[in-house]
Design a protein around this nucleic acid. Structure first.
Lengths: 331, 331
DNA sequence: TCGAAGTGTGGCAACGTTGCCACATGGCGG
DNA sequence: CCGCCATGTGGCAACGTTGCCACACTTCGA
């Protein structure tokens, strides 16, 4: 009666509003909607109807604040434009959604500062956990100090201190190299990104093992630090391939480097695989389109993402059995 | 004195803790940290030191709840594994980070249900705004009913009812088609995804305009509803190209369809561009690698993403001039 | 007939912040 | 000498939820 006469308050409906409309207390309304605790059948019905008419959507932040837990996981990858990370993110998104979690996603563009910033944002949001492809151990240490559940994906900096989902990089690299040796190659170059990362390191290891085992001498000149993008790799590859005793095969440890090498070969008029064999980690779509084909270790990044979510949920003690909310999805 | 003797409470430090350690009230602590309102120089220093030692990170949710605003934007795209959407997301992520916002990202895998679910999650989180590539007008309507600021990207379902960032699809398609006509092509097929979308529709329009203007009769058989992925497009293309009066050029309205057509041409042993001209929307990396090259409308999805964020911030009345927090980034 | 259990419901505090207000100083002019 | 401003600081309520507890009513067995 004495209320203001504003036509339509642009304010979003709150639990209090629903309670008032249904003519019951907030406590009861909460119980009716969440399905925890007693609530009479008729009351429940009235409450649900009221919620529907008001278009009530519970305030996730308020809920989190009160319950001291969050249904959000933080995800931090290196570069969304790289199909490997995009796939990883897609896998995480899918699994997270299924488990009733939402995903807060960022990429650092190889910048440690951006990475740290993102980590802080995750802590600020009190995410339930974080999945990341780190640039160094620093962020992971920070997150662990903040008691955040962390799962490392793809590469590992804090082995033993938190969960990780990684593939057998050394083994795959070894098998790949053995394949090249079987084809008769003796001068094989390795294009590697970041040896400080477990991926680059393990793949180098596998490569070296296979060479040693195959009785091929290790040649430092054939290990190329090819930088972090296709353009740099292209330049580096042109250099290497222009040498007199150029390699007859190149092993690129990721899709970007493979692209660079491929372009370099194209620049130089080299045919693959006649003039140069090219093998790679990360099976990208273009590899099957490009004229003669490239052999690649198919890394199922989507699966890695899903697995990472699985690990994280396990770690959180959540068995993935989330209740569905009671109110129906709006039309 | 009478406090419990737990060694290290795993509980995260709160404003209250910082205040106690600094020996001032919560109010003062809040002011000192946020930089709003009075705070003596010495007090400020003590508070900052206390925050540092405790590793204090402000609780973003509590802040949002109190201030009734959120520093998060919701982003909903169709498919993260499609480079177009990945780029879009990357652009959004970048611009959002710069403006001090965090991003909540999901993809619906073409599922309207997943889309609606995500929209509800956004509302529940009380995001500041949403950027999306919608599947239909329903989600947009829902979000608008909930008074959420919405920016449509790539395609538009609620024209005039909310902001949108779209390119001149009709114009670009027209110019592309004109190019083909100039090359002498008269039998041109259009591979289109979803004519209910403004993208597909406008591109079809531009195509039709160019044909009409160029005096080429419209042939329904040359408009192919090619489905939503490369595999379907491939099959469809094989069908079309096997006809006696097969087209001499194909215009694919997106990168997936172009890939399908390219593979079909490859299957049939057709050379591009000698036997078949292929033009496309979305300039993907593979197009420049694949042997003879494909002409494409380079859509800068990253830029679209950035622009969408710009629009959204404008809409929110935020001029992008966010204050940096006072505490330094942890080591 | 009375108490105990069973079945619902409401009151209230708390989660971690912030912003309004009131209050405590000190220096100053009237 | 008193009141007033400027400069700081603390108290308190509120944001929207949830969960504990207390309470009211019904039913039932002793």
């Amino acid at each position: 009666m004495s209320s203001t006469v504003g036509d339509q308050p642009p304010r979003r409906a709150t639990l209090r509003d629903v309670a008032q409309l249904a003519g019951v207390s907030q406590s009861t309304t909460s119980r009716a909607l969440s399905g925890e605790g007693y609530a009479g059948a008729d009351v429940r019905e009235r409450v649900l109807a009221a919620a529907e008419t008001l278009g009530y959507v519970p305030h996730a932040m308020a809920r989190s604040l009160r319950k001291q837990d969050s249904q959000t996981i933080g995800v931090l990858v290196s570069d969304l434009q790289n199909p490997f990370y995009a796939d990883l993110a897609a896998g995480i998104a899918d699994a997270a959604r299924r488990a009733g979690y939402t995903m807060m996603l960022t990429d650092d563009q190889g910048s440690a500062e951006a990475e740290m910033h993102a980590a802080q944002a995750f802590v600020a949001t009190r995410v339930a956990g974080v999945i990341l492809t780190a640039l160094s151990g620093d962020v992971v240490e920070y997150l662990l100090r903040q008691h955040v559940a962390v799962v490392e994906a793809d590469r590992q900096f804090a082995a033993g201190r938190c969960d990780a989902v990684v593939i057998d990089n050394a083994g795959a690299a070894r098998r790949m190299t053995e394949h090249l040796l079987e084809l008769g190659h003796r001068r094989i170059a390795l294009f590697v990104d970041e040896t400080a990362w477990t991926t680059g390191n393990a793949r180098s290891e596998g490569f070296r093992e296979a060479l040693t085992h195959g009785g091929v001498a290790w040649d430092d000149a054939f290990v190329v630090q090819a930088g972090w993008d296709a353009a740099l790799a292209r330049t580096a590859a042109i250099d290497v391939l222009a040498r007199r005793d150029h390699p007859t095969a190149i092993f690129a440890v990721n899709n970007l480097l493979a692209e660079g090498v491929w372009r370099a070969a194209s620049d130089l008029g080299l045919r693959i695989p006649e003039d140069l064999s090219l093998v790679s980690f990360d099976d990208s779509r273009w590899m099957s389109m490009v004229t003669p084909g490239i052999t690649a270790v198919a890394q199922d990044a989507v699966a890695v993402g899903r697995a990472a979510v699985g690990r994280l949920l396990e770690r959180l003690g959540d068995r993935g059995c989330r209740r569905r909310p009671r109110w129906s999805t709006p039309r």
